[in-house]
Design a protein around this nucleic acid. Sequence first.
DNA 1: CTGTTAGCGCGTTCAT
DNA 2: ATGAACGCGCTAACAG
Lengths: 332, 332
Amino acid sequence: MTKLTMKDIARLANVSQPTVSRVINGNKAVNEDIAKKVMKVIEEVGYIPNKAAQTLKKSSSHIIGVCVTEVYNPYFVELIETLEAECRKIGYNILLHNSKHNPITEWESIQNFLARQVDGLILVPASDYNMQRISELSTPSVIITQNKPQLDSIGLNHLQAGKIVVESFIRAGHKKFGFIGTEIDEKFLGFDGSLRENGFTFDKRNYVRLEVTSIDNFLMRRDIEKYFTEVGRPDFTCAFAANDIMALEFMKAAQERNIRIPEDISLVGFDDTYLAKIMGISSIHQPIEEMVKMTIEILQNRIEHEVSSTPVTIQLEPMLIERNSSRWKRID
Amino acid sequence: MTKLTMKDIARLANVSQPTVSRVINGNKAVNEDIAKKVMKVIEEVGYIPNKAAQTLKKSSSHIIGVCVTEVYNPYFVELIETLEAECRKIGYNILLHNSKHNPITEWESIQNFLARQVDGLILVPASDYNMQRISELSTPSVIITQNKPQLDSIGLNHLQAGKIVVESFIRAGHKKFGFIGTEIDEKFLGFDGSLRENGFTFDKRNYVRLEVTSIDNFLMRRDIEKYFTEVGRPDFTCAFAANDIMALEFMKAAQERNIRIPEDISLVGFDDTYLAKIMGISSIHQPIEEMVKMTIEILQNRIEHEVSSTPVTIQLEPMLIERNSSRWKRID
DNA sequence: CTGTTAGCGCGTTCAT
DNA sequence: ATGAACGCGCTAACAG
């Protein structure tokens, strides 16, 4: 079966090609009987309009380009799934790329999106590197999970997240604090800042540092093992991990050294993914659905109304979900 | 910055539009100086060719449509990531859909792929429902993870996987066998068949059955809880789970009831995902990279040579990776 | 080597 | 209400 075009349908239905176009696009100005006949032919032969031609003609593809930084973390998978579902509801498809935290790759992806005539971009940014030129694009874009001044963005208050965790640790009687992550980000700054506010200081040796490039099981485990080898038994009684995977990896590595969670070390993760739920790890909840819905609303607005006013910045508040990994009162 | 076309570049470089096209497509029959000038202009203004127009002209989009059944299982995430990486290497993008085990959704996705002029399809089938009409498409397609007679397919020998697991259980001294899954599939048939061959029978009450629709943490857990509530302490000393998530959920639910893994119940999962690695769950390894590479090779062949010979069927052999969840000799 | 011409499949005037 | 004609941006065939 060779590809059919509108012309073929027109011939089969004894009408002109524009009439077929009108029928397909629900143009009312067309005789009902003719419309029915055309529809019948379309059904019979299984004709599907060529979106490349439609895109070319309307300079709109009904595709949203999405670029995330990783998919190892189930949080992003859930994010993508929700994005896809919500986009589908309003008639958009998603073109998905993975920058793997690499700004060069991110920019290549964006070029590709533009070449494919996407109507909008949704980005989990790999770094600040591309933000400026993204803001200069004629294609509207929204940053998700983080806030960036130059662009429409919708993120979580990471500073506040760090603070919430510190406060819960302090309430539970902890005095020595650990952090598990890849970099000095806002989560850490909130964590560190809140410690100071409460009269504590963060001991740098309690930073379990993973490489940004350690985004698989083997590499993360290696970094954590390295920490234990260098430091021995950790000098903290509670720890905040930058995401649930890190929390889980740390928990397993600790348990193998007979460090009990939460008795010896209380643990809080980030993202509140299914991993945290299954494993009973406390975690900072990110309201994915809310974020996604707002993101798409903003984007759709930009696409349809093209109002290039000042960037919209929305910041959602984090919530700590307490589970067994941190349900422990410290008495000493 | 409004969208630029080849015509604009041509004007800026004082050449004709087809010359720009030649330069971009690396056509050698073009004066070097002119080529350089054109390239310079392209660089300066940041021109990107319109792929919708290219697609329309060449009736080839350089897109592969991929439709999977779920993304909750990290196995599929890894599969998708590998597919994307391999496709990118040969200049293809991926359009990703999720059928959520629904054949209707699957067919809609395929229609969408065809509308977008994809050059090929890669499918994790939702059921046999669409196989026939997929085989009648003019767009080449390959089924991955399972074997289907009508189509090119590359899968794992699931029967053999069930058999391997049974044999390892028997060697460890087990006599009462459990299965955790959603349906009577080949894994189960291999498991059950091998039990018979070895003089055992599978007790239906030892089937921990999850709904096909239970593809998230909450629902799977509910199904497993239901099993424990109905059956009480399971009457098996070893169990084979249809995937790693199920294995993990079962493990956690069991442990909460003071059933020890592996001492009381030895456990083997399926897919050998990072979950199994982190949690020390034995699992059947699926050679993702090998599968993906072969899939793409077959597809590329079909796309380029269009040889519609008989379907290619490749079946890879499973391998059991033993970890702590089943390292236990049963003596009774 | 380069420019002119045509046409991919569709939506959109403009006539009728 | 319908058809003829045009053009979206690009590649390919053909002249010159």
